[in-house]
C-alpha cells in the first residue's frame, strides 16, 4: 500500500514536471504570472527551474533513491504549491485552472488545493513508516551491507 502511494506521489510530480519541460517555458511563466506572487525577476527563474525539480524529485521518489531526501523535496514542493494556490484563493484571483500539469490535465484551483493537501498528508504518512515505504526501492537494494552485485 505504502509502496503504491510512494509511486503515485512520484508519478504526480514526474508527469507535472515532464509536461511543463517539453513545452515552451513561456506557457508555465504565464501560469506563474497569474498567481501574482513573485517579483518579475523571479518568475522566469521559477518557470524554468521548478519543472526540472519536480521531474527529478518525482523520479527519485518513484525509484526510492535517496528516499529520505527526495521525500523531503516532495514535501517542500507540495507545501509551496499549497501556499501559492491558497494565497490565490484568499485573494480571489481570477484563475479558471491551476495550470499545475501543463496542458496534460486541467484542474480547478479549488480542487487542486484539496489534492495537494492529500498529497502532503500522504508524504507525512510515508515519513512515519520509512521502512515499509522503502520496499522495492533502490535504497533498500543499494544500502544493504553486502549485496551480491
Amino acid at each position: 500500500m505504502l509502496v503504491i502511494l510512494r509511486i503515485f506521489i512520484g508519478l504526480v510530480l514526474l508527469v507535472s514536471g515532464f509536461d511543463k519541460i517539453i513545452s515552451p517555458y513561456q506557457n508555465f511563466l504565464y501560469v506563474i504570472q497569474a498567481y501574482q506572487m513573485f517579483p518579475d525577476w523571479l518568475e522566469k527563474f521559477v518557470a524554468i527551474c521548478v519543472p526540472w525539480v519536480e521531474l527529478m524529485v518525482g523520479i527519485f521518489v518513484i525509484l526510492g533513491l535517496w528516499f529520505n531526501w527526495s521525500l523531503k523535496g516532495a514535501l517542500l514542493l507540495f507545501t509551496c504549491f499549497i501556499v501559492i494556490v491558497g494565497q490565490a484563493l484568499l485573494r480571489h484571483l481570477p484563475l479558471d485552472q491551476c495550470g499545475c500539469f501543463g496542458s496534460a490535465i486541467h484542474i480547478p484551483v479549488q480542487h487542486i488545493i484539496v489534492f495537494d493537501s492529500l498529497m502532503l498528508l500522504s508524504i507525512f504518512w510515508l515519513m512515519r513508516h520509512p521502512f515499509k515505504a522503502k520496499k522495492l526501492s533502490l535504497d533498500q537494494y543499494l544500502d544493504l551491507p553486502n549485496p551480491r552485485r
Binding site: 513545452s23 515552451p24 513561456q26 506557457n27 511563466l29
Partner: peptide, 20 residues
Amino acid sequence: GVQSTPTYFINDQMVVGTKS
C-alpha cells in the same frame, strides 16, 4: 507549443499573456 491564449510570437519570440 501554444497551450493558452493570448500567445504571441513577437519577431519569432514566443510570449504568453499580457504581462509578458
